[in-house]
């Protein structure tokens, strides 16, 4: 909610200069219902920001605004300085429901983003197998989603997003629909993949452990309407692996986020009022 013109901002604000995603004064109403309000957030070009907050607090809606799938009611989102008004190039989403097209094979699902980006058939034939390999789905190119477990479907969803080599990845509780074990396997695989190709990532999750494990910063959303309640810097070294979860610092951070999430929602608001 700054009043200075944006382009001047972009030149003079050092934080903005390095940030890939800029969210300023973002609010969303559905008729009377205000889902979130006055959200300011910057995400760096190789930074993972995790969003935690109770279900229904507007995390999915916020991601939709960042991707230009729905228009915000107030404020704006910029990616590389350009205001987002429709899904921008170079932004890929991984959905909680995997978002695979059930009538397409794994190969064609993974190829979908490339096809939409106008990549030639030959280049697709070359690049898709590499990404199928990357997520460990070799041999399942011709399977249909119904033939795959949830974990494998999300691997395909991940490959489809990665295949377009996005500069921004939006993850909407990507492992939320998976069983605990599969979820853990995929968390560490995603970390490994991210280390080889760091991107700007906004990662929505229900799980506090996951938020701390994946994020460089954890943003706690809270209140009605939701606002940014607190941002916690996660000073855990990368690459992060299974060993990270046994680090005492990991547990400290987890407790810290836990307490923020669990404290009575209206504490801070009521003091201010």
């Amino acid at each position: 909610m700054r009043s200075t013109p944006r382009d001047i901002n972009a030149v003079h604000d050092p934080a903005a200069a390095t940030s890939r995603i800029q969210i300023r004064g973002l609010g969303k109403y559905f008729d009377e219902l205000c889902v979130f309000d006055d959200i300011d957030l910057d995400v760096g070009s190789a930074e993972v920001v995790t969003l935690v907050g109770p279900s229904g607090c507007g995390k999915t809606t916020l991601l939709r605004c960042i991707d230009g799938l729905v228009a915000p009611s107030t404020g704006e989102v910029r990616i590389d300085g350009a205001p987002v008004v429709e899904p921008p190039e170079g932004v890929a989403v991984v959905f909680q429901h995997f978002g695979l097209f059930p009538w397409k094979t794994v190969f064609r699902n993974v190829a979908y983003g490339l096809r939409m980006a106008g990549v030639s058939r030959r280049a697709i034939a070359e690049r898709v197998p590499a990404f199928i390999e990357l997520v460990g789905l070799r041999g399942f190119e011709n399977s249909y989603p119904y033939q795959l477990s949830g974990g494998m479907q999300q691997r395909a969803g991940l490959a489809r997003a990665l295949a377009v080599e996005p500069k921004v990845l939006l993850m909407d509780e990507p492992f939320g629909a998976l069983d605990a074990q599969t979820r853990e396997v995929l968390q560490f695989e995603l970390l490994r993949i991210w280390d080889t190709r760091p991107t700007s990532m906004v990662f929505v999750t229900h799980s506090i452990d996951e938020a701390v494990l994946m994020g460089d910063r954890v943003v706690v959303l809270k209140g009605r309407p939701s606002t940014v309640h607190q941002v916690i810097d996660v000073d855990l070294a990368r690459p992060r692996t299974r060993a990270t979860t046994t680090d005492p610092r990991f547990h400290e951070l987890r407790e810290q986020v836990w307490n923020l999430v669990m404290s009575t929602p209206d504490d801070h608001n009521s003091v201010e009022r």
């Binding site: 991707d67 799938l69 429709e86 899904p87 190039e89 932004v91 890929a92 989403v93 959905f95 429901h97 978002g99 097209f101 979908y112 983003g113 939409m116 980006a117 377009v164």
Partner: peptide, 16 residues
């Protein structure tokens, strides 16, 4: 709606 949203997130137009 989720299928439509996935397509739109990959910049699909009506003909796509």
């Amino acid at each position: 709606a989720r299928h439509i949203e996935v397509a739109r997130s990959f910049r699909a137009r009506e003909r796509h």
